[in-house]
Design a protein around this nucleic acid. Structure first.
Lengths: 344, 344
DNA sequence: CCCGCATCTGACAACGTTGTCCAGGCCCTA
DNA sequence: TAGGGCCTGGACAACGTTGTCAGATGCGGG
């Protein structure tokens, strides 16, 4: 009772502090600190008394104060587009595992592909003094991060490079993956191949488009602009785009889908068709092997992207002064049937 | 240069503080604080000078210090099993959105279904003084949280109830959902129905098993223990369990799968079979409608679970003294074909 | 011209922890 | 037994911010 009365003001709902523990154990404040942090120089007997007091009061160290004193928060921030996207779940988990191995917690936020929101999130994380940031950028200008990086916030970009600043980036080989995927279709005899992808302002989308064009050019096939649909990912518009390129005198006989969301919708459209149209998608999709036909994809390893980025981040934090680097991970073509269908 | 020299010790890599800003703007410390926080009582001219100094130095408020002073961190913790699981992505995102609407950041951690790791994570979050916790429990004894809750940490459990303490919980109607799913199979003429689920120590798994038994009992069908496989989720063992109940003189003609991972594996097993076996799964799976046949599921709304829990959390934080409550969300049977196959 | 009041500003303490440093007690050696 | 070194414990300042309160300034009215 009297404790409650005495400490009514405490904003953490009457949480005991080291001072309280010290008073109860009849020792000095710093001795409690030593016990809590396992520092040497405390007799077993004293330690026992302190531990008892800690247990009795339900004391838990306030890491906010600790952080203020020590300067490291042991937390890192992850800003991605949408945690609900199956591509980012494994990535996030991988970052978390690496963080955990380094004793750090992970704070994450979804930018919803909005550059302003990305910036807002990143700066909020900086205000929390996260030790480092893993960012899947939505915007294309990251100069706002310059003071932060100069101030020592380790930063690694993932999936897409940073805009207008020089920073580490870990990405998949979108260009090569797309080129290989399209080349695979060409090797199967296709010549009229559609491409449905995201807005080219998104780096990965632009790279995949470039891969598509490169494969076509390598094969000497001129690209008809009607075969391409850019900046389209919501199901309704993907559907229309696909239907558009599938009709008329010279419909495409194969489609290359620029990401997992597009692929899924295209699969639906093709399922309703009475003729067989080939499909290769970028990003693996769950159960892709069980569909009829199985969905051929250019797979990237989301977890590996996250792991690589996080490891790079902690290498920065461990004091290595590294020059900004671009790490590109290979993609893998997985043949499951849809990409091996011959032209109609 | 001289600034660098002067503040070399600063552990945040020479980050300017309000004191630096004040010195540069030629005003008092508190005036800077007022400007930064948009408090009234600052002349436009003074404000301008301060803003200039802030911009020139690249100052960013240190929220750690702020938290220490104010007692609220504006962050909440989310502990779940595995962020890479497609069930938790949307849930996490929903929690994040609610947090964002309340100006809070989300720290999350994966327990990997390990009670010790869950406790470790939760206590680490408490040490950071998160304002609240959303927990998908792995363990079944949460008395370790009592001092925290007493100290004012808002807490809501999701998907499974807390163990040995009284706390808010938001869950899906696992029992009802499973009962309805199995009843649906029975209505389709099945009598030998298999059940493959997780360990019954996990609440949802136990409830779904109970639903299965209830449906069977309601229909007056005695359950053969060989039709049940508990504590099995990894693909290899699910596969064996399914194959086991599908062979012999009296094989099951339908399977009820206890969660999304089980469902996926069972789909694979059934795809290899030459006869048609009915399947109903708990949890929706992506592309379930595109498989042949479509996968009938008892769907729960992960995002709604997360949203409901987070909203409850913030109601606690807004000061409402609420009695611990159990909120149960309904499930929905989605018929897509696999659950409507007749007995062989 | 001075007083009172409103407005703006700044000095200071406090938040809970950790780093520094010194005091006191003990044991060992000369 | 005196002196020196080691071990344990505690007082105090500092981290960067915000709340409190009082001082300074300006203005209008008596």
């Amino acid at each position: 009772m009297d404790r409650t009365a005495r400490r009514t003001e405490n904003r953490y709902g009457n949480r005991p502090t080291m001072k309280d523990v010290a008073a109860r154990a009849g020792v000095g404040l710093k001795t409690v600190s030593r016990v809590v942090n396992g520092e040497p120089g405390v007799t077993p007997d004293t330690e026992r008394r302190v531990q008892e007091a800690i247990a009795a009061l339900g004391f838990r160290r306030n890491d906010s104060a600790r952080v203020l004193r020590k300067g490291r928060t042991a937390s890192i921030g992850l800003v991605l587009e949408d945690l609900a996207d199956p591509f980012y779940g494994p990535l996030s988990r991988a970052v978390e595992e690496v963080a955990r191995a380094h004793g750090a917690l992970l704070i994450n936020g979804s930018s919803a592909e909005d550059p302003d929101r990305e910036q807002e999130l990143v700066l909020a994380l900086c205000a929390r003094r996260v030790d480092g940031l893993v960012v899947i950028p939505a915007g294309d200008d990251h100069r706002y991060l310059e003071p932060e990086i100069a101030a020592g916030v380790a930063t690694v970009f993932v999936d897409r490079p940073a805009g207008r600043i020089d920073a580490d980036v870990v990405l998949s080989d979108s260009f090569g993956g797309a080129r290989d995927g399209v080349a695979h279709l060409i090797a199967g005899g296709h010549r009229r191949i559609g491409f449905i992808g995201d807005q080219p302002r998104i780096h990965t989308a632009a790279e995949r488009l470039r891969g598509y064009r490169a494969a076509m050019e390598d094969a000497g096939i001129p690209v008809d602009e009607r075969w391409m649909s850019l900046g389209v990912t919501d199901p309704e518009r993907v559907r229309r785009a696909a239907e558009e390129m599938l009709k008329g005198q010279e419909p495409v006989t194969a489609i290359f889908a620029g990401n997992n969301r597009v692929t899924v919708t295209v699969v639906r459209v093709l399922a309703e068709l009475d003729r067989r149209v080939a499909l290769v998608g970028f990003d693996d999709i769950e159960l892709g092997d069980l569909l009829q036909p199985g969905v051929t994809v250019v797979a990237q390893d989301a977890a590996q992207l996250g792991r690589t980025a996080a490891e790079r981040l902690f290498r920065q934090l461990d004091g290595a002064t590294l020059l900004p680097e671009r790490i590109e991970l290979p993609t893998r073509l997985i043949q499951r049937g849809s990409g091996e269908l011959p032209p109609a």
